[in-house]
């Protein structure tokens, strides 16, 4: 059971919190201890707005372990408004309606649970804008 691991991902998972480099301004999601562009360790908390556009999407029928309960799920690359590309599941959408170009908004959903006794992971999925 990995409680601390799921806990430390909460700011990213629940609030789409990452960092902006205090020196070069580069945005990272999730938070970067060290800017991969300039090497700076002066990071400022940055909350992404949650709006984005689907660049690519697939509907998954055979899932890796622990994701069978979501099948069939649309798995997408979402380009956030701030320019970062984020792999994320889509939700509140008929799989057939998922397509590149779709405007989406972040919502919080149950992603996984560590068995029947472990912590529940709540994290981001994306729904069609104005849908969730």
């Amino acid at each position: 059971m990995q409680i601390a691991k799921s806990w430390r991902r909460q700011p990213a998972n629940l609030r789409l919190e990452g960092t902006r480099c205090g020196d070069c301004g580069r945005l990272s999601f999730p938070a970067a201890l060290r800017c991969s562009a300039c090497g700076s360790t002066r990071a400022q908390e940055f909350r992404f707005c949650g709006r984005g556009e689907v660049l690519a999407v697939t509907v998954v029928y055979e899932a890796p372990r622990d994701f069978a309960e979501h099948v069939p799920y649309p798995a997408a690359i979402v380009r956030l408004e701030e320019g970062i590309d984020l792999p994320a599941m889509l939700t509140d959408i008929d799989p057939a309606d998922a397509h590149p170009g779709l405007q989406v908004t972040m919502c919080t959903r149950r992603i996984a649970a560590q068995g029947d006794a472990g912590p529940i992971v709540y994290a981001y999925k994306f729904a069609p804008a104005g849908e969730c």
Binding site: M89, C107, T108, R109, R110, I120
Partner: peptide, 13 residues
């Protein structure tokens, strides 16, 4: 509720 929803996700929204 969908398979990725529960009381917490409903309350959050």
């Amino acid at each position: 509720p969908g398979c990725d929803e529960d009381t917490a996700t409903i309350a959050i929204q």
